[in-house]
Amino acid sequence: MSLLIDLQNITKVYRSGESEFHALKGISFQLFRGEMLAIVGASGSGKSTMMNIMGFLDHCSTGNYFFSGHNVSRLTDKELAVTRNQKIGFVFQSFFLLPRLNALQNVMLPLFYREEPEALARNKALAILKKVGMEKLIDHRPNQLSGGQQQRVAIARALVGEPDVIFADEPTGSLDSKTGEEVMKLFLHLNQEEGRTIVIVTHDKGVSHLCQRVVALKDGLIVCD
């Protein structure tokens, strides 16, 4: 298995006025392609900050971040956006679909920012929606879909750009246990059958048990791997 993410002594400090808050106090961690990883920890333990840095939403304060061999710790905003668009797929707790767009348009959004021709983007989005079992509801808007259906569309949006890794932040947090299980089954399928690398941030034991590797954070440090 090849190394995908290599964090070397990453710290993150938030400053507001005089006070400083050390969200991450020196994280060293490696993620290999094809892994399915759960990051667990209490709220405020730094797990979301870690995901944001790995997902190119945020810069780290010190330390080095290598993504498939390249040092990406000091990218500009624009480079971060391009990397996010091409290498990363996000799934969020409350789905974060654009309410004015239908399911198909939501899935096409990352390809729109990649400037792919519309017809090609459409075909790709349709194929992915079929894979997550949403092909019959492509013209529905998010408010016409159930929570589980919305999360499937969000997963399709994360997958459509063929990313190297998918980050899921509490993907089952807003779902009832049955639909939550279905969503987890989908993630397991994507990992086991298609070999996709998946990182799930959660505090749900039932979710982390399904993952082959669990990393626990406490007060900005990895306490268990």
Partner: peptide, 9 residues
């Protein structure tokens, strides 16, 4: 959301 899926500034 748009920034997360890769929109540039």
């Amino acid at each position: 959301i748009r920034l997360a899926v890769g929109a540039k500034r």
